[in-house]
Design a protein around this nucleic acid. Structure first.
Lengths: 215, 215
DNA sequence: TTTCTGATTGACAGGTCAGTCAGTGGACTG
DNA sequence: CAGTCCACTGACTGACCTGTCAATCAGAAA
């Protein structure tokens, strides 16, 4: 019985503020989804990962369904904020903005094995649950329209004459495709390698603004 | 006791009836996965879809786990045979072969909503189940190496100087990405439109051999 | 200190599901 | 016709999981 030393002043307090506890449970849910998959994610397992009782999980989230949909919303919002901030930090040139959006998707902070696996779990269930489909779809709708706009401006600026809708779609599906690779392959290639693959697509579309890097 | 002579065509089709029933159950499993998602796929639901008792499902497949992994193997084999046959039917030119492999992935027979949804269900669980990961991975390994070889020959023939590994990967992730679109979008674009997106990627890589069609 | 409030626990109820099993029925055989 | 085989059924069991609830506990307020 080596309970954490009661004298340790750094030990987290037994009770926590509502928001802190909720975020902790959501992070535990992401970990559990990644480790066991959607079908084997139980409240008891999430609670164990978070180091609390399963009753407390329901105290904060009412139902399992609600916990999962809030977790998805959390991931979607995290994703949105990530590329929004990257876009704001990038230069005004369309090529800089396009590159910023691409690189944002491979930011080590959000492109972790656990988060990718959690996304994949939700995709697998989304088809049969309109609630999830909405979250996944909204995430993409915003991203897509900005991406199309950026591609349109870059195409105009460089005189490429590309159709922005199809160009943006190609880049977006390339990103989702390498994500799927990173998730489902037994020994996936590096995140850097994944980024290069997408940048290769951009270089093929806009050769004067992107270079074909080799991993 | 001699095994039923499944090699003897004159014999009454006792074993064949067994195979027919098994395939029927597997098709019902695919339907159920698509309609309810992996987590809500129960033996009772599969049995109801197939119009039999749930005891019979277990009679033929022993365990639920086994039913699901056999369903995945069935899908993987169906996928493999589809592109293999397409390749055999195509002309010998690398560009014909590449186009055949791409078009095969959008063959209406395998690119149905139910099958795409079933694939997605398995992807969502594969991360936490080495058994599934093997089936998904093997499927891709064979496809990838042929695709890389075809890209290499096409690149040589046309003097494109493309790196076959990265080019093949881009085309493959584009395919997987549009598949994911078709699965997760509330109102996805047409299958024909998806095919065009992938062919656009091929046209960017090999402009003298593919044309940029507009949907 | 006492009181109050809200976080936290864990036992429990209700329900679902995978897997078991004894028995049924139809087809084939002798 | 009697016997055998085997696909097939459906009631049943044991395990597990979600959600409830009364009791407990920690910290803030009075």
């Amino acid at each position: 019985m080596t309970e954490a030393c009661d004298s340790d002043p750094a030990r987290p307090p037994r009770t926590m503020s509502r928001d802190v506890r909720r975020q902790q449970v959501i992070e535990a849910t992401i970990e559990t989804l990644a480790a066991h998959g959607y079908a084997r994610t139980t409240l008891t397992q999430v609670a164990r990962t978070a180091g609390i009782s399963h009753g407390l999980v329901l105290f904060h989230f009412d139902t399992k369904e609600n916990l999962l949909s809030e977790t998805l919303a959390y991931l979607a919002e995290e994703y949105r904020r990530n590329w929004t901030e990257a876009l704001a930090a990038a230069g005004p040139a369309p090529s800089d903005q396009l590159n910023a959006m691409i690189e944002a998707d491979f930011n080590p902070r959000i492109c972790t094995p656990a988060r990718l696996a959690a996304w994949c779990s939700f995709w697998g269930e989304a088809q049969s649950r309109p609630l999830y489909q909405a979250s996944c779809g909204d995430k993409d709708d915003a991203y897509t329209s900005i991406l199309e706009d950026t591609c349109a401006r870059l195409s105009d600026e460089g005189g490429y004459g590309r159709d922005p809708v199809h160009t943006a779609r190609l880049i977006r599906v390339a990103i989702e495709g390498v994500w799927l690779d990173l998730m489902t392959m037994a020994t996936p290639y590096a995140r850097e390698e994944a980024l290069c693959t997408v940048q290769m697509a951009a270089a093929l579309c806009f050769p004067d603004h992107f270079e074909m890097r080799k991993a």
